[in-house]
Amino acid sequence: MRLGLVIDLDVCVGCHACAIACKQWNASGTTGPLSDYDPYGAEPSGVWFNRIRHFEVGEYPNNKTINFPMSCMHCEDAACVTVCPTGASYKRAEDGIVLVDQDKCMGCNYCSWACPYGARELDRASGTMKKCTLCVDRIYDESIPIEERQPACVLTCPAHARMFGDFDDPDSAVSRAVRERGGYQLLPELGYNPTNHYLPPRKAPPIPTENLGKPGFRERLKTFANKLVRR
Protein backbone atom coordinates (compact mmCIF):
# COMPACT_ATOMS: atom_id res chain seq x y z
CA MET A 1 0.00 0.00 0.00
CA ARG A 2 1.01 3.52 -0.60
CA LEU A 3 -1.31 5.79 1.30
CA GLY A 4 -1.55 9.49 0.74
CA LEU A 5 -3.71 12.42 -0.21
CA VAL A 6 -4.93 14.10 -3.34
CA ILE A 7 -5.61 17.81 -3.10
CA ASP A 8 -7.99 19.23 -5.66
CA LEU A 9 -6.92 22.77 -6.42
CA ASP A 10 -9.94 23.21 -8.61
CA VAL A 11 -12.24 23.32 -5.62
CA CYS A 12 -10.11 24.20 -2.62
CA VAL A 13 -11.53 27.47 -1.35
CA GLY A 14 -8.73 27.97 1.15
CA CYS A 15 -10.97 27.81 4.19
CA HIS A 16 -8.33 26.36 6.55
CA ALA A 17 -10.82 23.82 7.91
CA CYS A 18 -8.45 20.97 7.20
CA ALA A 19 -5.64 22.75 8.99
CA ILE A 20 -7.67 23.25 12.14
CA ALA A 21 -9.22 19.79 12.01
CA CYS A 22 -5.71 18.44 11.86
CA LYS A 23 -4.66 20.55 14.79
CA GLN A 24 -7.69 19.50 16.75
CA TRP A 25 -7.38 15.80 16.10
CA ASN A 26 -3.66 15.64 16.61
CA ALA A 27 -3.58 17.82 19.71
CA SER A 28 -4.89 14.79 21.55
CA GLY A 29 -3.50 12.30 19.05
CA THR A 30 -0.49 10.01 18.92
CA THR A 31 2.06 12.78 18.66
CA GLY A 32 0.10 15.41 20.57
CA PRO A 33 -0.08 17.80 22.21
CA LEU A 34 0.94 20.30 19.57
CA SER A 35 2.36 23.28 21.40
CA ASP A 36 1.13 26.80 20.83
CA TYR A 37 3.52 29.55 21.81
CA ASP A 38 2.44 32.94 23.03
CA PRO A 39 -1.13 31.84 22.36
CA TYR A 40 -2.75 35.05 23.63
CA GLY A 41 0.23 37.34 23.24
CA ALA A 42 1.78 39.62 20.69
CA GLU A 43 2.91 37.04 18.18
CA PRO A 44 1.08 33.74 18.45
CA SER A 45 2.51 30.71 16.74
CA GLY A 46 2.53 26.98 17.11
CA VAL A 47 3.03 23.52 15.71
CA TRP A 48 0.86 22.58 12.74
CA PHE A 49 0.90 19.61 10.39
CA ASN A 50 -1.10 21.21 7.66
CA ARG A 51 -0.89 24.76 6.46
CA ILE A 52 -2.85 26.56 3.79
CA ARG A 53 -1.10 29.04 1.58
CA HIS A 54 -2.66 31.28 -1.00
CA PHE A 55 -1.00 32.09 -4.29
CA GLU A 56 -1.89 34.27 -7.23
CA VAL A 57 -1.17 33.11 -10.73
CA GLY A 58 -1.07 35.53 -13.64
CA GLU A 59 -1.65 39.24 -13.75
CA TYR A 60 -4.76 41.32 -13.24
CA PRO A 61 -7.34 40.92 -14.68
CA ASN A 62 -6.29 37.51 -15.95
CA ASN A 63 -5.21 36.39 -12.53
CA LYS A 64 -6.32 33.35 -10.63
CA THR A 65 -6.08 32.78 -6.93
CA ILE A 66 -4.92 29.34 -5.87
CA ASN A 67 -5.49 28.07 -2.37
CA PHE A 68 -2.78 25.64 -1.55
CA PRO A 69 -2.91 23.25 1.40
CA MET A 70 0.30 21.44 2.26
CA SER A 71 1.03 18.64 4.65
CA CYS A 72 3.48 15.76 4.55
CA MET A 73 3.59 14.18 1.11
CA HIS A 74 4.68 10.80 2.48
CA CYS A 75 7.38 10.72 -0.18
CA GLU A 76 8.62 7.49 -1.71
CA ASP A 77 12.16 8.76 -1.56
CA ALA A 78 11.87 10.45 1.76
CA ALA A 79 15.22 11.99 2.50
CA CYS A 80 13.78 13.14 5.80
CA VAL A 81 13.90 9.51 6.83
CA THR A 82 17.31 8.62 5.48
CA VAL A 83 18.98 11.65 6.99
CA CYS A 84 17.56 11.05 10.45
CA PRO A 85 20.45 9.92 12.64
CA THR A 86 18.38 8.39 15.41
CA GLY A 87 15.95 6.33 13.45
CA ALA A 88 13.12 8.32 14.94
CA SER A 89 11.94 9.13 11.44
CA TYR A 90 10.73 6.13 9.57
CA LYS A 91 8.62 5.13 6.66
CA ARG A 92 6.26 2.28 7.23
CA ALA A 93 6.79 -0.58 4.85
CA GLU A 94 3.17 -1.64 4.88
CA ASP A 95 1.58 1.63 3.84
CA GLY A 96 4.32 4.15 3.17
CA ILE A 97 3.32 6.47 5.97
CA VAL A 98 6.23 8.54 7.21
CA LEU A 99 6.25 8.99 10.95
CA VAL A 100 8.41 10.28 13.76
CA ASP A 101 8.81 8.13 16.81
CA GLN A 102 8.50 10.67 19.57
CA ASP A 103 10.39 8.43 21.97
CA LYS A 104 13.47 8.35 19.79
CA CYS A 105 13.71 11.84 18.36
CA MET A 106 16.52 14.04 19.66
CA GLY A 107 15.20 17.24 18.11
CA CYS A 108 18.13 17.96 15.83
CA ASN A 109 15.89 19.48 13.11
CA TYR A 110 17.92 17.75 10.46
CA CYS A 111 14.98 15.93 8.90
CA SER A 112 13.17 19.23 8.51
CA TRP A 113 16.13 20.49 6.52
CA ALA A 114 15.81 17.55 4.24
CA CYS A 115 12.10 18.09 3.67
CA PRO A 116 11.35 20.35 0.69
CA TYR A 117 7.71 20.74 1.61
CA GLY A 118 7.87 22.26 5.04
CA ALA A 119 6.05 19.31 6.47
CA ARG A 120 8.02 18.96 9.68
CA GLU A 121 7.83 21.25 12.65
CA LEU A 122 9.74 21.02 15.86
CA ASP A 123 7.72 21.15 19.05
CA ARG A 124 9.87 23.23 21.34
CA ALA A 125 8.11 22.04 24.46
CA SER A 126 8.65 18.34 23.85
CA GLY A 127 11.86 18.89 21.94
CA THR A 128 10.74 16.54 19.25
CA MET A 129 9.96 16.76 15.57
CA LYS A 130 6.33 16.47 14.62
CA LYS A 131 4.54 16.01 11.37
CA CYS A 132 1.44 14.77 9.65
CA THR A 133 0.79 11.20 10.66
CA LEU A 134 -1.74 10.68 7.89
CA CYS A 135 -3.94 10.22 10.92
CA VAL A 136 -2.58 6.75 11.35
CA ASP A 137 -4.37 6.72 14.69
CA ARG A 138 -7.72 7.24 12.96
CA ILE A 139 -7.44 5.22 9.81
CA TYR A 140 -6.56 2.01 11.63
CA ASP A 141 -8.70 2.52 14.71
CA GLU A 142 -11.31 -0.16 14.43
CA SER A 143 -13.51 1.34 17.07
CA ILE A 144 -14.14 4.30 14.80
CA PRO A 145 -17.02 3.74 12.36
CA ILE A 146 -15.59 2.56 9.08
CA GLU A 147 -16.74 5.56 7.05
CA GLU A 148 -14.93 7.82 9.48
CA ARG A 149 -11.64 5.94 9.30
CA GLN A 150 -10.21 8.75 7.25
CA PRO A 151 -7.78 11.52 8.08
CA ALA A 152 -9.40 14.31 10.04
CA CYS A 153 -8.58 16.84 7.33
CA VAL A 154 -10.24 14.75 4.66
CA LEU A 155 -13.37 14.17 6.71
CA THR A 156 -13.82 17.83 7.43
CA CYS A 157 -13.03 19.44 4.07
CA PRO A 158 -16.22 21.29 3.15
CA ALA A 159 -15.24 21.47 -0.50
CA HIS A 160 -14.30 17.80 -0.70
CA ALA A 161 -10.99 18.97 -2.06
CA ARG A 162 -9.11 16.27 -0.21
CA MET A 163 -9.06 12.58 -1.03
CA PHE A 164 -7.36 9.82 0.86
CA GLY A 165 -6.42 6.47 -0.55
CA ASP A 166 -3.97 3.92 -1.83
CA PHE A 167 -1.85 5.04 -4.76
CA ASP A 168 -0.62 1.51 -5.32
CA ASP A 169 -4.11 0.46 -6.23
CA PRO A 170 -4.73 1.68 -9.77
CA ASP A 171 -8.47 1.52 -9.21
CA SER A 172 -8.54 3.58 -6.07
CA ALA A 173 -10.27 6.95 -6.19
CA VAL A 174 -6.96 8.71 -5.70
CA SER A 175 -5.22 6.85 -8.50
CA ARG A 176 -8.12 7.46 -10.83
CA ALA A 177 -8.29 11.14 -9.96
CA VAL A 178 -4.59 11.56 -10.61
CA ARG A 179 -4.90 9.77 -13.92
CA GLU A 180 -8.01 11.50 -15.15
CA ARG A 181 -7.31 14.97 -13.91
CA GLY A 182 -3.60 15.22 -14.60
CA GLY A 183 -2.57 15.08 -10.97
CA TYR A 184 0.97 16.23 -10.34
CA GLN A 185 3.67 16.28 -7.70
CA LEU A 186 5.34 19.35 -6.27
CA LEU A 187 9.01 20.09 -6.89
CA PRO A 188 9.41 16.98 -9.03
CA GLU A 189 12.97 18.00 -9.90
CA LEU A 190 14.09 17.18 -6.37
CA GLY A 191 13.23 13.56 -6.86
CA TYR A 192 11.43 12.85 -3.61
CA ASN A 193 8.59 11.22 -5.48
CA PRO A 194 5.94 12.51 -3.14
CA THR A 195 2.87 10.36 -2.71
CA ASN A 196 0.47 13.27 -2.37
CA HIS A 197 -0.67 14.69 -5.66
CA TYR A 198 -2.35 17.94 -6.65
CA LEU A 199 -5.13 18.22 -9.17
CA PRO A 200 -4.88 21.33 -11.31
CA PRO A 201 -7.86 23.64 -11.80
CA ARG A 202 -10.25 22.37 -14.43
CA LYS A 203 -10.97 24.37 -17.56
CA ALA A 204 -14.68 24.94 -17.97
CA PRO A 205 -15.80 24.17 -21.51
CA PRO A 206 -17.03 27.23 -23.38
CA ILE A 207 -20.78 27.73 -23.43
CA PRO A 208 -22.18 28.37 -26.89
CA THR A 209 -23.76 31.79 -27.28
CA GLU A 210 -24.65 31.74 -30.94
CA ASN A 211 -28.17 31.43 -32.29
CA LEU A 212 -29.80 32.66 -29.17
CA GLY A 213 -32.95 34.64 -29.75
CA LYS A 214 -33.45 37.25 -32.39
CA PRO A 215 -31.90 40.61 -31.70
CA GLY A 216 -34.05 43.68 -32.19
CA PHE A 217 -36.90 42.95 -29.86
CA ARG A 218 -37.17 46.64 -29.15
CA GLU A 219 -38.15 47.36 -32.74
CA ARG A 220 -40.35 44.29 -32.97
CA LEU A 221 -42.20 45.34 -29.87
CA LYS A 222 -43.63 48.35 -31.67
CA THR A 223 -45.66 46.08 -33.89
CA PHE A 224 -45.79 43.22 -31.50
CA ALA A 225 -48.40 40.52 -31.45
CA ASN A 226 -48.54 38.85 -28.08
CA LYS A 227 -47.84 35.22 -27.79
CA LEU A 228 -50.81 33.30 -26.52
CA VAL A 229 -49.81 31.70 -23.27
CA ARG A 230 -52.44 30.27 -21.02
CA ARG A 231 -51.89 30.11 -17.35
Partner: peptide, 17 residues
Protein backbone atom coordinates in the same frame (compact mmCIF):
# COMPACT_ATOMS: atom_id res chain seq x y z
CA UNK B 1 19.48 19.53 20.13
CA UNK B 2 16.01 20.15 21.47
CA UNK B 3 15.92 16.77 23.13
CA UNK B 4 19.52 15.86 23.99
CA UNK B 5 18.53 12.92 26.13
CA UNK B 6 18.07 10.98 22.94
CA UNK B 7 21.39 12.08 21.48
CA UNK B 8 22.88 8.65 22.03
CA UNK B 9 20.50 7.26 19.47
CA UNK B 10 22.20 9.33 16.81
CA UNK B 11 24.75 6.60 16.18
CA UNK B 12 22.19 4.15 15.01
CA UNK B 13 21.52 5.28 11.46
CA UNK B 14 25.04 5.53 10.08
CA UNK B 15 24.04 3.51 7.08
CA UNK B 16 21.97 6.34 5.62
CA UNK B 17 22.57 9.46 7.62
Amino acid sequence: LANPKNAWRAFSRWRTS
